[in-house]
Write a protein that binds this DNA or RNA. Sequence first.
DNA 1: CATGTCCGTCACGATAGTGTCACGCAAGGC
DNA 2: GCCTTGCGTGACACTATCGTGACGGACATG
Lengths: 231, 231
Amino acid sequence: MQMNPHVLIVEDEEPIAQLLKYNLEKEGYRVSVAGDGEEALLLADEGKPDLVVLDWMLPKLAGIEVCRRLRSARDSRNTPIVMLTARGEEGDRIRGLDTGADDYVVKPFQMSELLARLRAVMRRIRPALADDKIAAGDVTLDRGSHRVKRAGKDVHLGPTEFRLLEYLMQHPGRVFSREQLLDAVWGSEVYVEARTVDVHIGRLRRALNAGHDFDPIRTVRSAGYSFDVDG
Amino acid sequence: MQMNPHVLIVEDEEPIAQLLKYNLEKEGYRVSVAGDGEEALLLADEGKPDLVVLDWMLPKLAGIEVCRRLRSARDSRNTPIVMLTARGEEGDRIRGLDTGADDYVVKPFQMSELLARLRAVMRRIRPALADDKIAAGDVTLDRGSHRVKRAGKDVHLGPTEFRLLEYLMQHPGRVFSREQLLDAVWGSEVYVEARTVDVHIGRLRRALNAGHDFDPIRTVRSAGYSFDVDG
DNA sequence: CATGTCCGTCACGATAGTGTCACGCAAGGC
DNA sequence: GCCTTGCGTGACACTATCGTGACGGACATG
């Protein structure tokens, strides 16, 4: 189940936007186009793009602003951003990278260079997209079919447990605090008790470890939880 | 996030300042508070904060001015700045980002959002502080996975022992007094007996040296302790 | 409406971790 | 050698943190 990556183009100059759209579609991407910053945020929110190509000079909402909002906590997917800047805007470029852009291309650009850059960013930031699945140890999580398996057998998880496991498995071994998990899984705008994380971890464990004796979820006292592939 | 980053809050409204202080400390930051711009520059100079939270509306010295001076040559550390602005001050916001602020949060804000933003800025600007491993001799300490190994084998440490070792390993060979260690590991706001450090050093030694004959922790009589990589 | 699923919160018990003390040994100074 | 001071550590009471069963509410489904 390999869906073509979805690219959002944010560019106010119509000819350039169309050129990009044409070439990217030929390359196999699904493409949306936004003409200004507000539209960009709207489309990003509902389209869940896998990658954003962002022009730096925009009407209504500056590129940096779009970049920052895309990067805000609601975007737990950490969508990679490639910005387009005009020659000589060194300061903007650096600020862009600081704000969370992943790469930039200087206008005017060779289409082939842009495509190469996009491929590179995709590979670097979301290797997971190449295959829709994450696997660690004997646990497999499939984003496409929304399924989790342990040792080949289906495991039923609630939506929150699924996202929790997904987030933990994205960085195996890494310990996340309850606050980090709340931010990433629940979102920064809702307030829930930190201990709620514990309860969901418990439910996740019960579902995941039924019939197994190794628990891949590690508790680190007064620090948080992590997903470990073993020992 | 454990070798607690130091945050300087510049905010003239006392209740907000206290709220911030409380939450940031709970999050594990060390916190200083400045009530106006002049105090801010003073504290920034002597406290060497890792991050500054800067209110835009200040008595005596406007936020933008503080921002500019923090950014001037004296601050070679390029300390990241997050500014707090009131809703609708778009112009200020942009000028702030131009002046060198790294991000902003609009008042009123959700605490969780601010915390997330601070974490993001820290990650972006100083990955070394938030992440990575320290190694010295045959001991490795990994902040990300919260693990300590001696000669490749896992060593289990309590939270305090972990932070203690982390602090010592950051400056191998350097001797820290009990007071310094209390300040850095326990925090300046709690009062505990200086001898408590001894007990934790003992526990740390027992865990770290099990099955080894070289003790990397050196006692310097009437001075303190240090982590030494070799005899 | 009845039923089922999932969620967030609470309360309780278990246990790992913490701070302090006291005792005895070790390290110097003289 | 003797005395003073500093350090190591077992013991212990206390606390913080974690796991989990229970419960009521939200929401969807039939």
